[in-house]
């Protein structure tokens, strides 16, 4: 099984350890992995162009599964797309609000609306959402089938094997 791990420079530093751990575990379970890293800048006015640029790349035939580890790689197209939502704000729009929340101009609001729309499209088409907390999972459950799972067991989930430690196994949010 080939699994493509996708991440962006925007949050790459936060995810580097997670990424390496996941890659090692997947390999240990017999899956091949490769990592793509795309540039991203939250600087207005290029945000929408960048989201569209991710969308234009075709990764559908490269791997059996694609895991988006940081936004906006969830914009990439893949029939078996798995999204991960971290605890402190899974979505791009959260990053946008952190950066521009204090600036309440109409043009900024318009861009924010469009980001929200794009995220909804990208999220709804995902096969699975992996959350690292129940809080986030509850929030995401309305848009994508989400499970709560820790990083250690994400690998098991991806390759379709049961976790060795049932205490850490994924639990579907009702």
């Amino acid at each position: 099984m080939q699994i493509l791990l996708a991440t962006s420079t925007e949050q790459f530093h936060n995810r580097e350890i997670e990424l390496e751990s996941l890659r090692d575990q997947l390999q240990a379970l017999g899956a091949s992995t490769d990592v793509l890293v795309l540039p991203f800048s939250m600087e207005d006015p290029h945000v929408l162009a960048q989201l569209a640029s991710y969308r234009m790349l075709d990764v559908r035939h490269f791997a059996d599964c694609m895991v988006s580890l940081s936004p906006p790689t969830h914009m990439l197209r893949h029939p078996n797309k798995v999204l991960t939502f971290s605890e402190d704000g899974p979505q791009m729009v959260d990053s946008w609000d952190r950066k521009y929340g204090a600036i309440e101009t109409k043009p900024m609001q318009a861009i924010r609306n469009l980001i929200v729309h794009a995220e909804q499209v990208a999220t709804e088409e995902a096969a699975l959402g992996i959350c690292f907390s129940h809080h986030v999972a509850r929030r995401m459950q309305s848009v994508v089938n989400s499970v709560v799972i820790d990083a250690t067991n994400l690998a098991f989930q991806l390759v379709g094997k049961k976790a060795k430690n049932p205490r850490l196994a994924g639990k579907v949010v009702a």
């Binding site: 420079t9 540039p39 939250m42 290029h46 162009a49 640029s53 075709d58």
Partner: peptide, 12 residues
């Protein structure tokens, strides 16, 4: 589209 996608990306 790959060329244009690259042109539309930004490095911060």
């Amino acid at each position: 589209s790959e060329m244009l996608a690259c042109r539309m990306m930004q490095i911060e």
